[in-house]
Design a protein around this nucleic acid. Structure first.
Length: 494
RNA sequence: GGCGCUAUCGUCUAGGGGACUAGGACACGGCCCUCUCAAGGCUGGAACACGGGUUCGAAUCCCGUUAGCGCUACCA
């Protein structure tokens, strides 16, 4: 068994998130990035970002931009300039060639078609295919002749006998018999590096001390360890996180609906809640603590509590958690967190417009926040408080609470008269007055308040209706009741 | 097929030999609060995959079985 001594424990921590830009930033990637970020923050290390764009056919600039956007939204800021793997091709090639020159790797002239054929026949014979090293047995003259003839060749790494093992931060010891690892390709016939080669070369060059990624990379790890050793570099510490699956237990994919972090951003989820929820997929602070801020998580994060089991992404709990974070936000933080959503909803032109009415806005948010689970819901809850909102009647709510239009009109007229005559305009006095009116009319407060709610806000749900009336003011309340009355009159006439 | 990883309520998890008649949270049901919706409080049902060991004692340690997932490319 080969020694797998790790980097000196005293050296500053450097971790990286290394996505390939072949799509949006999905929740699994975000979770991996989060753990790396948390780890770096906890230990006072650096969190780096590397874009693995060596697959030219599948990599796109849009994907790279989406990854930046997603990480930025989550607040997972990287500490140094972004590294583009494609920019390091020369070094990858140099490192591979160094191994070739030192006899640790060899040229292979077998064509993809030949390999494919051998693989197929192995399958037919029901035996495991493994490259048979025939090109490693080429004699010197033959080799020289074929190189001189310009025959295309790849570079293969020669895997020695023995076993390769490491101490994984989440899995303890993992060991692979080397006989199960074939002499893998490190350089394609066009001279470009294969994944494992590029990763190891870059991780060494970037001084990565801890390689923490999804456990789908476990079987790549022994190959990478072999490369580190061949290159004479000290090994990083490895940690392999479990995967995140969909409700059906399968690896998360588009079939499962929203899997991009951007989807959740647009669904009204707070980055703080997203991080919190993601952190709990494969990690726990121990005990019963669940709702945490980013600082809470940094403080408590430890690789000791990393789980090994894949977890299922259940958005129900995400929504609940979002509601928790929403109600904990106050003052400026609440205003700041909600500003983008309100601008997107067209309720404010820009951030300056928000600042102009900052205190009023903060009060409205404070009133509404506990009733909302998502920022989208909060926007809708707060909408009636914005000046100039047309009264849009929710037909389902009207059907329920204005079931008898004639009676609804009678009630609303009474409410209107009371509000118009009220001298003391406070939440408490409005409530007392309308409750007295309900008694006077011989109805419960609930049906009267609900009927009034629709008249004033158009909706069947919202915060306390008396508080709403108080806040939007007498003028708007009466105007809305008037249009509700008109609406009801037209309806009964039709 | 080969190799590897994993296995506690439907879901996220606590648990690291006795404190376990297995705790919390989401979801679901009931009750309370209540002007609706939330929030909150109380409450109900709901799990250690199976089989062998080790031990005075196992959810916890070991082995096997089963199942799921991953890798098995001149993809990353």
């Amino acid at each position: 068994m080969s020694a797998s001594h790790s980097v000196a424990s005293g050296s500053p921590v450097r971790v990286r998130f290394a996505p390939s830009p072949t799509g949006y930033l999905h929740v699994g990637g975000a979770r991996t990035a989060l753990f790396n970020w948390l780890f770096a923050r906890k230990l006072g290390g650096k969190f780096l970002l590397r874009i693995e764009d060596t697959d030219k056919a599948r990599s796109t600039d849009e994907s790279t931009a989406a990854i930046f956007e997603g990480l930025t939204w989550l607040g997972l800021q990287w500490d140094e300039e972004v590294v583009y793997q494609g920019g390091n091709l020369e070094r990858h090639r140099r490192d591979a060639n160094a191994m070739l020159e030192r006899g640790l790797a060899y040229r292979c002239f077998c064509t993809p078609a030949e390999l494919d054929e051998r693989r197929k026949s192995a399958e037919r014979a029901k035996t495991a295919f493994k490259y048979d090293r025939r090109c490693d047995r080429l004699d010197k003259d033959d080799l020289a002749r074929r190189i001189a003839a310009g025959e295309p060749s790849v570079v293969r790494f020669r895997v020695a006998d023995g076993a390769t093992a490491w101490h994984d931060l989440v899995h303890e010891t993992i060991s692979f018999p080397n006989k199960d690892i074939e002499d893998f390709v490190i350089l394609r016939s066009d001279g470009t590096p294969i994944y494992n080669m590029a990763v190891v070369s870059d991780d060494i060059a970037m001084g990565i001390t801890h390689v923490m990624r999804g456990d789908d990379h476990i079987s790549n790890t022994p190959k990478q360890i072999l490369l580190y050793q061949a290159l004479g570099a000290s090994l990083p510490v490895f940690a392999h996180f479990p995967m995140i699956h969909g409700l059906d237990g399968k690896k998360l994919s588009k079939r499962h609906g929203a899997t991009a972090v951007a989807d959740y951003q647009h669904l009204g989820i707070l980055p703080e809640a997203m991080n919190n929820f993601l952190a709990l997929m494969g990690w726990s602070p121990g005990g019963d603590l669940e709702v945490m801020t980013r600082d809470d998580m940094i403080e408590r994060f430890s690789t000791d509590h990393l789980l090994r089991k894949a977890s299922v992404f259940d958005t129900k709990k995400l929504e609940w958690m979002n509601g928790q974070h929403l109600s904990r936000l106050t003052g400026d933080a609440l205003v700041a967190a909600m500003t983008p959503s309100f601008i997107a909803a067209g309720l404010f032109a820009d951030a300056a417009a928000v600042q102009a009415v900052h205190d009023w806005f903060a009060t409205v948010l404070e009133d509404c926040k506990e009733r909302a689970r998502t920022t989208d819901q909060l926007v809708e809850l707060a909408r009636p408080f914005f000046p100039g909102q047309p009264l849009v009647i929710d037909t389902a709510a009207a059907a329920k609470h204005w079931a008898d239009p004639a009676q609804a009109m009678e009630w609303l007229q009474a409410v209107r008269a009371h509000l118009a005559a009220l001298t003391d305009w406070t939440d408490a006095s409005i409530e007392a007055d309308l409750k007295a009116l309900a008694t006077e009319l011989g109805v419960g407060a609930s049906p009267l308040f609900q009927a009034t709610r629709i008249a004033v806000t158009g909706r069947g749900v919202g915060i306390s209706i008396t508080k709403t009336i108080f806040r939007v003011g007498r003028e708007v309340s009466l105007a809305n009741i008037d249009s509700a009355l008109t609406h009801l009159a037209e309806q009964s006439a039709a």
